[in-house]
Write a protein that binds this DNA or RNA. Structure first.
Lengths: 239, 239
DNA sequence: CGTCGATTTGAAATCTATCAACGATGGTGG
DNA sequence: CCACCATCGTTGATAGATTTCAAATCGACG
């Protein structure tokens, strides 16, 4: 099975065989997590680092009124808690959408690995910077003029990110996310998300069938959404 | 003059005299930036790291329709571009609100300093994690039910952050930010921000006079906003 | 006093939430 | 195979929040 983290890092760094071997052995201990299960709970402290290997998870907080605010999607190759040890405990929770496979790595083993593989250290810091850039764009996305463009923008992001780790085929990708989940992601009501998706499908910019999203014309969707992929540090749309 | 970065780091780390001396000498080369000036331009690459010493700046992007989306405030003690070198160029711009004083540090000198002062290295990584936690909360803030609560929440954050670096007195702080700036920050129209602030002032939760914000009863504002300061890794509201 | 930027106000148009109900779908057990 | 259940998706109607446009007021400052 492809190692998505390696694939991600190799998109920007020349990893040696030693680097890759180290990463493979790091991610050898995996666990399968059920759909809609909590992977990491707010305020918890862990000796381990978690790396998504399969499926999609999300970072979220529960607001005082009980609503769930999702502010990040974690896809294969993403690391859940690389920089958490400096804090007393994580300030948010992480749950799965569909079933996920997660690699569990002792933090000290990862630290050793970084110490002996400098390129890997730089690559992982780059990955952390990338997560931060993505987070910035999640703030900016909400400023787009319409719910349609916000949704379109997120689909663009996911197409690039999933493509980077080899999880797209013919501009389509698995979609385990319900409209209610998507509403908590975009900060809209479920009803409005439903109508928004209908409009987007009506224009032909996206198709959603049997838990899979297709984007017939990525260029058109990008133009519609005003999507600029620079923040992803990728050349996906600049070919 | 107080060194706000030292004050921030000391809120959580026991810095040695050597650590502090190193930080002071790092921040000795400062430059004054005019109000509403661009400090760092999108896509630029710099040999230097910039640290805010006085005034408030912001990170922002310009959307396709020309609007400005602000997604971070940088206050004294904040570092503008610590983790940027791994990217080709920064993916956003930074501008000042009022006049700012900024310390300019050669990146390699900072790196050397971190290498020889391990505690400083950990402290700066903590500061970076804190910036990320703040960014997460800026996504979550937009999910609050009303514009009033969103604004109240941001005022709570600023009270804590500015307090942490010694820039509050009697629960008030300088406010160089216009309503138009604030609108670009909250993602609301200027007109609506005006009415939102009027309502907040009407309740007595905040006062704004001559470029200064006062919060007569922080506990009341916190309760109103549903503000939880955990993400700031601070005990401000937990006394 | 005049000017410029910033704040404030009013009214209409648009977007989004809420509430309540209905329909589709897939899985499960009888 | 069918009835049943739970989850998800869809629809209509109404209320509420926010934007937009345009104009008036305020305040600092030369």
């Amino acid at each position: 099975m492809a190692n998505h983290l390696i694939q991600k890092l190799e998109s920007r760094f020349a990893l040696t065989d030693s680097d890759k071997t180290a990463l493979v052995s790091l991610t050898s201990n995996t666990r399968t997590i059920e759909p809609r299960a909590t992977l990491i709970l707010e305020a918890s402290v862990s000796e381990n680092v978690h790396i998504i290997q399969r499926g999609i998870a999300c970072r979220y907080k529960i607001l005082p009124d009980g609503t769930r605010a999702i502010f990040a999607y974690l896809i294969p190759g993403d690391i859940c808690d690389l920089n958490m040890p400096l804090f007393g405990g994580i300030d948010h929770s992480i749950s799965t959408f569909g079933a996920c496979e997660v690699a569990i790595v002792r933090r000290e083993i990862l630290d050793d690995c970084i110490a002996t593989h400098p390129t890997l250290g730089r690559a992982l810091r780059w990955a952390a910077s990338l997560d931060e850039a993505i987070l910035r764009e999640w703030v900016v996305r909400k400023r787009r003029p319409s719910a349609e463009k916000q949704a379109a923008h997120l689909f663009c992001e996911l197409l690039v990110r999933l493509g980077l780790v080899g999880l797209t085929s013919r501009n389509s990708f698995d979609w385990p996310i319900t409209q209610a989940d998507f509403a908590d992601t975009l900060g809209l009501s479920g009803v409005h998300v439903n109508r928004t998706l209908q409009k987007l499908r009506g224009t032909g910019l996206i198709e959603i069938r049997s838990k899979r999203v297709s984007i017939p014309d990525p260029q058109a969707l990008q133009t519609y959404a005003g999507f600029n992929s620079n923040y992803l540090n990728s050349s996906y749309f600049r070919a």
